[in-house]
């Protein structure tokens, strides 16, 4: 296998919510243009960890972070513009959180925020990102309808398109299919597979089959510690860690 460039480099990361330590000295390298899955039982810190990459944890006041995260060689907890970081590192949430606006305005929100004003250019971005999210054919005639009229699965793909519209390099997905039916889930998984040609994807999932199906690398978290990280096939077939094996085989979790 070819060696890929490292996109996100994490070194000895600790995270505290007040007194409670939610992440314990996590160290890992996430490769570019691959899908990396985080698995583990509820409350193990995987979502918290994901939110470190675009500094969404900044919004929680009691949250304190020590250690290093570099994206493309830049310390993202150094002196940087957080808003520009979040433009580069897109995020898709657990529940489809479309804005209660038109489909058009949903996608245009990001580009407009970052200063795109020209109408034809906006339209180009909207078509481009909806196409990438596999939604263009379904909504191209109803762009001015409220996004709330879409089904749950369509809304989630709209959220992906919305994230893509600001042309990020990394896409963070926080259990993106946990609120969706199997068919919509399947579509999103296919989409991820296509998107990894252009984007680095980090996905948190509760669904181990999903991790197995779509990811290249898998990391297993338990109680704030990363106990196992490696090629997905290896993690699922020959886990090195006993607890990871118990979790994967369904003995707890």
């Amino acid at each position: 296998m070819e060696t890929k460039n490292i996109s996100i480099k994490v070194d000895n990361l600790d995270l505290f919510y007040g007194e409670h330590q939610a992440l314990k000295s996590v160290t890992m390298d996430i490769a570019e243009k691959e899908i990396t899955a985080f698995i583990g039982p509820s409350g193990c810190g995987k979502s918290t960890f994901l939110r470190c990459f675009n500094r969404m944890n900044d919004l929680i006041e009691s949250c304190k972070i020590t250690g290093l995260i570099e994206i493309d060689g830049v310390d993202i907890y150094g002196k940087i513009d957080v808003n520009k970081l979040r433009k580069e590192v897109g995020m898709v949430f657990q529940k489809p959180n479309v804005f209660p606006m038109s489909i058009y305005d949903n996608i245009a929100f990001g580009p407009r925020t970052h200063g795109v004003k020209k109408r034809d250019y906006l339209e180009h971005i909207i078509e481009d990102s909806l196409t990438k999210a596999g939604l263009w054919e379904e909504v191209k005639d109803t762009l001015n309808k409220s996004a709330l009229m879409l089904s749950g699965g369509q809304q989630q793909r709209l959220c992906i398109a919305r994230a893509l519209a600001v042309s990020p390099k990394i896409l963070l997905m926080d259990e993106p299919t946990s609120a969706l039916d199997p068919i919509s889930t399947g579509k999103i998984e296919e989409l991820c597979d296509k998107l990894k040609e252009q984007y680095t994807i980090v996905i948190v999932t509760h669904n181990m089959q999903q991790a197995m199906r779509i990811s290249d690398k898998t990391a297993f978290f338990l109680l704030g510690e990363m106990l196992e990280f490696g090629e997905t096939s290896q993690v699922f077939s020959q886990p090195k860690n006993k607890k990871c094996e118990n979790y994967i085989t369904g003995r707890f979790g």
């Binding site: 808003n83 433009k87 949430f93 529940k95 959180n97 804005f99 925020t113 970052h114 959220c159 994230a163």
Partner: peptide, 19 residues
């Protein structure tokens, strides 16, 4: 949730409030 969607797109706090 809707607010964090806007933050995640790189919108500033003032932007989130106004838009």
């Amino acid at each position: 949730e809707v607010k964090s969607a806007a933050y995640a797109l790189g919108c500033s706090k003032l932007g989130v409030i106004v838009k």
